[in-house]
């Protein structure tokens, strides 16, 4: 068998792949040592295998190298020193790793900020709701305050009328229709203002209203209508020269002349 025939059997490939028995190996090794042509062919087979292996290369994770170097005595320092001087492929990979970490960091950052944004949005919504509640409460408070203030003003005003010496108090007592009824008129004879204060008066149906009368020169004069349910003093029509006041029940809106049968309250003006 000449060298070319020997080569064409594929023996060198089998040798390179470690497929031969010990005896076959020894024979190939002996032949190689004797034939430069065979040696050259072996190199080509090996180079082809190497090129193929490089073509199918997959870069292992960096942790694998660290794990190996950890097990080699005195190698751990080298790893860190040598890493700066790595080959182009490794540089690419380091760069790739850098981008991987950068991407991972970006994603983590995006997730974090999304979470925070959502969180703050939730808080903002909550805060907004709380604020609206407070505004509503505040408006309610202000309204209440105004109401109270208004009432207080009225009470102070009423009180000033009651206490004023300019006003004459006329006590109206219940008639036989309602003996326990009680009211009072505060009348300023100078300004002719009339205020009514009811202490006790039974309610009436909605179709009817109370009507106040002033007795002037023996004639009843309309002094205004009112419903029973009011607090404090109620300003009535101005009256001049009355000698007595009376309250009758009349149809809503009042009448021109009183219905005497429905009289509830009556009281004379004290002579000064």
């Amino acid at each position: 068998m000449n060298i070319q025939e020997y080569i064409s059997t594929g023996i060198l490939e089998a040798y390179v792949l470690g497929e031969l028995t010990e005896a076959e190996r020894a024979q190939v090794e002996k032949n190689i040592s004797m034939s430069p042509e065979l040696k050259a062919e072996l190199s080509k087979v090996e180079e082809t295998l190497e090129a193929f292996a490089m073509k199918s290369a997959i870069k292992p994770r960096a942790e694998v190298k660290a794990a190996i170097m950890d097990k080699i005595p005195g190698a751990s320092k080298i790893v860190s020193r040598q890493e700066n001087a790595e080959t182009k492929v490794v540089e690419l990979s380091t760069q790739f790793n850098y981008w991987k970490y950068a991407a991972a960091a970006s994603i983590a950052f995006a997730l974090l900020t999304s979470y925070l944004a959502f969180n703050y949005h939730q808080r903002w919504v909550d805060t907004q709701a709380n604020l609206n509640n407070l505004i509503t409460q505040n408006q309610q408070m202000a309204q209440n305050y105004n109401t109270v203030n208004h009432k207080l003003d009225k009470i102070q005003n009423d009180l000033s009328i009651i206490e004023s010496i300019a006003f004459t108090k006329v006590v109206l007592k219940g008639t036989s229709n309602e003996p326990e009824a009680l009211a009072a008129i505060y009348w300023n004879t100078a300004t002719e203002e009339v205020f009514l204060s009811v202490q006790e008066l039974k309610g009436i149906s909605k179709e009817n209203q109370f009507q106040l009368w002033a007795i002037i020169d023996g004639q009843p004069v309309d002094a205004g209508v009112f419903d029973g349910n009011f607090a404090g003093l109620l300003k009535m029509k101005n009256i001049k020269g009355a000698v007595a006041f009376a309250v009758t029940v009349e149809p809503r809106g009042g009448k021109e002349s009183p219905t005497l049968e429905t009289m509830r309250l009556m009281g004379p003006v004290a002579k000064s």
């Binding site: 292996a53 490089m54 199918s56 290369a57 997959i58 870069k59 292992p60 694998v64 790595e86 080959t87």
Partner: peptide, 9 residues
């Protein structure tokens, strides 16, 4: 550095 990728492949 030079050969791990080829072998790992």
């Amino acid at each position: 550095d030079h050969y791990s990728a080829a072998m790992y492949g």
